[in-house]
Design a protein around this nucleic acid. Structure first.
Length: 622
RNA sequence: GGACCCGUAGCUCAGCCAGGACAGAGCGUAGGCCUUCGGAGCCUAUGGUCCCGGGUUCGAAUCCCGGCGGGUCCGCCA
């Protein structure tokens, strides 16, 4: 109803006239159409050689949208009638302008963030959460039925280490006022680092001289880190260290925790869930500040207790691809797939897929096997057509193993419809973060630092509201304006720079547009507008507004939120240039005033909708 | 050693997948604009062997091949 893609209609009309004359399909012609690099050239261009047409051709084009057309070398350039476009857009523009719905909605699952529940979220998870949430919002706005799911890895070695450390402390509760995930993170890092030092010291006993030197260096590094982490809570550290020192075989104890939890031992269940849920509370609190919410938190352990993992394991053990590998049962993922299948499953040609180990020698399960069960659940309950996993680049191979295993175990459709949305690392001034070693900048810390910068800025402005909305906008934009597969060195200075090319810049531009409209307060329609006013930035603005439906569709269908960020920035740039030059409300000529009011309304609508699908709030003052 | 990702202005990045016209922003640096709808803004200047070498094409930052540089992975961790 209100979803008017005027430009799309214009393209189709032009294409349907020209296609027969050029002897090509209408769709093909629409596909090659592009926007000329400079306005003087025209509004639309068709590169004729791309359609197999060479040399000068004579074509007839007769449309109420077209002002003129001419061939310039290989291009057919078309100048459109801005009055016709303007009238069509603004006589039907609605609140939801541009957010075109798909004809056939899919059921989509986006799994994202899924951090281990053992330490607070850090800036690596921040990237994951923001990308994931933007994908949720984009696909939802496109009309799909989207579910956001968080996978709680509560049954692996990491959680067991945390619980082991807590056992040495007598299972304490975090002090009131302390954030629970921060508190647990310190205990986890302490326990882990003490265990690592102990392990490496053991290894030192029977090694050659060369290895010895290397390992001593590594141990010394760990000892230095241990001193650092000890300072966070010396009594805790000393008690854990003492407890581990007196332990005959800590690894056996950890293995026992894993085993008991997998078996569903009531006491172990109670303890593990208590602490895991504490950390998850911390996650929810942190993510809430960034307007990120989930529909489901799926506990890995539930898949074990329900028998879903066991059933997959049985299936795998009876598979023809089963092999023995280093004394374990594993799946051979190379032998039973042809080239064609590998291509379909997006597995690189030259990759020798490592065998998938199905379980540890002691019978406990491993992550990837459990993930097979989880993937099936994501597809089955509730039913999904497409599953998008937002997971770090480091897990590319395990994700390939997952798809290959699904195929081999008889779920080829699931394997095909499982997308690994990969993103690259976030480093910290060249330093790699490590939750394992307690070396990270937490999401909360980042949030707080950006918040301070926003408050600082507001102080100099005197007036303002919505601090948290601005912080959210700044952080989201900083992440979403960089393609996911580029590594980022996290730089707080960049995120707290609120000048052009930032989230707050877009929000500020929105405030300007909004305030013009709210001050005007009257009726805005297309009666009596003067079309001769549509020149320079105003004409440019009109065409940018016209491109919004197309940009949104591309961003949503290709899962590329960055298309939207750069589009909104460009819209803002043009609007701000114009804003400085001319008046809207104070324009004495009634026709011109109405033309401009329509454009402002267009900018306001597009910014609001565009920001919304990126998860950035629009403000009315700041 | 193998696989994947990245390499565009002093710095941070769009553009590459679906090839098209003199390659776009921001930061920085130098200078300018507050009597008018909000200066988180606007204007001017500055700045590029699009990592290198071949190939395909009417046309290559974009596709292909070969290098170079950086990142990631190759665990009975996740």
């Amino acid at each position: 109803m209100h979803n008017v893609d005027v430009l799309g209609r214009v393209k189709r009309e032009i294409a349907s006239q020209l296609a027969p004359q050029l002897g090509v399909q209408v769709e093909r012609l629409i596909a090659v159409m592009e926007y000329p690099p400079r306005d003087q050239i025209g509004d639309l261009a068709i590169p004729l050689p791309a359609l197999g047409v060479k040399g000068q051709v004579s074509l007839t084009l007769n449309s109420s949208y077209v002002r003129s057309y001419s061939q310039d070398g290989p291009f057919l350039n078309v100048k459109l009638r801005e009055d016709a476009i303007f009238r069509e857009i603004f006589s039907s523009i609605g609140e939801d302008y541009g957010l075109d719905k798909v004809e056939r909605p899919m059921r989509i699952v986006v799994e994202h963030t899924s951090a281990n529940p053992i330490h607070p979220l850090h800036i690596g998870h921040l990237r994951n959460a923001i990308i994931g949430d933007a994908l949720v919002r984009l696909t939802r706005a496109r009309g799909h039925a989207v579910t956001a799911r968080f996978y709680v890895n509560d049954s692996g070695r990491q959680v067991a280490i945390l619980i082991y450390g807590l056992s040495k402390l007598g299972y304490p509760d975090p002090p009131a006022g302390e954030k629970k995930d921060q508190w647990a993170g310190v205990i986890y890092a302490m326990t882990n680092i003490i265990l690592e030092i102990r392990a490496i010291s053991e290894e030192l006993k029977g090694t050659t001289e060369e290895e010895y030197r290397e390992k001593v260096t590594k141990r010394d590094e760990l000892v230095a880190l241990a001193a650092e982490i000890r300072s966070r809570n010396p009594p805790f550290f000393d008690r854990i260290a003492e407890g581990i020192k007196n332990e005959e075989d800590p690894e056996a104890k950890i293995a026992e925790i894993i085993r008991k939890y997998e078996e569903g031992d009531p006491e172990t269940r109670k303890i593990v869930r208590k602490y895991v849920d504490m950390v998850l509370d911390g996650f929810r609190e942190s993510l809430g500040k960034l307007r990120t919410e989930f529909d489901h938190f799926d506990y890995e352990s539930d898949l074990l207790w329900s028998g879903e993992v066991r059933s997959i394991l049985r299936n795998a053990l009876s598979s023809q691809a089963r092999i023995e590998y280093k004394g374990t049962q594993a799946l051979d993922l190379n032998r039973y797939m042809d080239e064609e299948t590998r291509r379909e499953l997006r597995i690189p040609e030259g990759l020798e897929i490592p065998p998938l180990v199905l379980m540890r020698a002691d019978g406990t399960t491993l992550y990837t096997l459990r993930d097979i069960a989880y993937t099936i659940r994501k597809f089955v309950s509730p039913k999904a057509d497409l599953v998008i996993n937002v997971i770090a680049e480091q897990q590319t191979v395990p994700q390939i193993q997952l798809r290959a295993a699904l195929y081999i175990l008889g779920y080829p459709d699931l394997a095909r419809n499982l997308i690994h949305y990969s993103y690259s690392m976030v480093t910290l001034q060249g330093m790699k973060m490590s939750g394992r070693l307690g070396r990270y900048i937490s999401l909360d810390e980042v949030y707080e630092r950006v918040r301070q910068a926003v408050l600082e800025k507001m102080k100099e402005k005197g007036d303002g509201e919505g601090v948290d909305k601005i912080v959210n906008g700044a952080i989201r934009y900083a992440i979403l304006s960089v393609s996911a597969d580029k590594p980022i060195t996290f730089n707080i200075g960049r995120v707290t720079n609120f000048e052009e090319n930032s989230g707050p810049y877009l929000q500020y531009t929105y405030v300007r547009a909004y305030n013009i409209l709210s001050k005007y307060g009257g009726r805005i329609d297309v009666n009596g507008v003067s079309y001769e006013d549509l020149v320079n930035e105003k004409r440019k603005l009109l065409f940018i507004i016209a491109k919004f439906p197309e940009t949104f569709r591309n961003a949503a269908d290709n899962l590329e939120p960055e298309l939207l960020t750069s589009y909104l920035r460009q819209l803002s740039d043009v609007f701000n240039v114009w804003y400085d030059k001319e008046r809207v409300i104070q324009e004495p000529d009634e026709g011109k005033r109405m033309t401009r009011l329509n454009l402002v309304k267009g900018v306001e609508t597009v910014l609001r909708n565009g920001l919304k699908v990126l998860g950035i709030d629009s403000l009315t003052k700041m």
